[in-house]
């Protein structure tokens, strides 16, 4: 993997927190584990990672995957610029 920060290597993703609808933008390497992104988001928004679920089109993200190897319905799609990740706070019910 090259070390440059050209656009080819990176992807711009936005993460939307479901409680306030605020979007946070990240530019990440395509080969970085999504876990890093999740952690960064939680840190930035002061959220407990354990209480969050991250989904892409309603499908949970695997934190060991990278944007380029993202699987959706067993098809490798990869993430593209502008793709939106939902950061969903887990909820309880009674």
């Amino acid at each position: 993997m090259s070390r440059g920060r050209s656009d080819e290597d990176t992807v711009k993703l936005k993460v939307q927190y479901n409680k306030d609808g605020v979007q946070t933008f990240f530019r990440v390497k395509r080969s970085i584990k999504l876990q890093k992104l999740m952690e960064a988001f939680c840190k930035k928004r002061s959220l407990d990672p354990k209480s969050m679920q991250f989904t892409f089109d309603g499908v949970g993200l695997e934190k060991n995957k990278t944007p380029e190897e993202l699987l959706l319905n067993f098809v490798q799609l990869g993430m593209e610029d502008g793709d939106e990740i939902d950061a969903l706070e887990l909820v309880d019910g009674a």
Binding site: K50, F54, T55, G60, E62, K63, K65, L72, N73, D92
Partner: peptide, 27 residues
Amino acid sequence: ENSDSRTASEYHGESSLHPCNRQNMKN
């Protein structure tokens, strides 16, 4: 089976562990 992967796999990945036990503990 891998049939109907969409519905059967609404949710990939586990990622964050869910701590939401406080309430349940109480319960």
